[in-house]
Amino acid sequence: MYDVFKVVNWLRVRNYADMQTNPNVEELTQMKAMKLLYYLQAATLSITGHRLFDNDLVAWKYGPVVVVVHDKYAGHREIVGELTDQDRADYALLQADQPTADILNSIYDVYGHSSAYDLMQQTHQEKPWQITRRNQVISDQVIKDFYSGVFVADEN
């Protein structure tokens, strides 16, 4: 299990790299990071049976949120900013863990180019957010039950 901010740094570094190679890539926003964290946690729970990070996902009005990440970036729309050596080290650490890197890269490849709004709309159409009362924790079991048929390990 990783510190959630290491996962956020992975997202920031990956997004920064994408922005360098594609002028159409938008900088990662706080809202989009929340939805990506949600799908990363869902995929990890579904594939490994364990959490990627220890923090709970909470069902807020605009979709799933990791409260400590929201609090850190409160007032900031975009969250990539200037990358530090530590940010890059966090990225390298997660990339070096092959099973984790496979999940991170797969989820980013599928959802990383969607807008924050589209990801919010998508989470609102899915059972875990729908059945969880606002401002309550979305249970790991509900997430796992819903996404186990969606996120599956690649057998190749």
Rank of each mutant, 00 (worst) to 15 (best):
V110F: 10
R77Q: 12
T123M: 01
Q41R: 10
Q141M: 01
N22H: 09
V137H: 03
Y62Q: 10
L94V: 00
A17Y: 07
T29H: 12
V68H: 01
D154V: 13
T100N: 08
Y16C: 07
N15M: 11
D154I: 09
I107A: 07
R12N: 10
A59W: 08
V25K: 13
N55R: 05
A17P: 00
V67G: 07
Y38W: 10
G63I: 05
G75C: 08
E78C: 02
M1Q: 05
K32Y: 06
D87A: 09
A116Q: 07
N9H: 13
D54Q: 11
P128A: 08
R133Q: 14
V25Y: 04
R51S: 03
V68N: 12
V4N: 04
V66K: 02
G81R: 09
F151D: 06
A59Y: 10
H124P: 03
W129A: 04
D3T: 00
D154A: 08
A89N: 11
I79D: 02
F5C: 12
I79K: 01
I47S: 09
D85I: 05
P23E: 07
A116I: 00
Q121S: 14
L94Y: 05
T123E: 03
A43C: 09
W60L: 12
D71E: 14
V25E: 12
D71K: 11
V58L: 05
F53P: 00
T100A: 15
H124I: 01
A153E: 15
G49V: 01
F5P: 03
D109K: 05
G81V: 02
R14K: 15
Q98H: 06
L45W: 06
N15K: 06
D145R: 05
P64W: 05
N135F: 10
Q136G: 01
K144L: 14
I131T: 14
S115T: 14
V80H: 00
R77G: 08
V7M: 03
L83H: 06
T100G: 08
V69P: 08
Q121N: 14
V68D: 15
W10A: 09
G149T: 10
V80W: 01
V7N: 02
D3L: 01
H76T: 13
T21Y: 04
F146M: 03
K32S: 12
Y39H: 13
Q136P: 00
V110R: 11
A116K: 03
V4F: 04
N55I: 00
S114I: 00
S115E: 06
D118W: 04
T84L: 02
Q41K: 10
W60E: 13
L94M: 15
K144T: 11
N135Q: 14
K144G: 07
Y2Q: 12
D71A: 11
M19N: 04
A43W: 05
A153S: 15
K127C: 11
A153P: 05
N9V: 00
V25L: 04
A59N: 15
Y38R: 01
T123N: 02
Y108I: 12
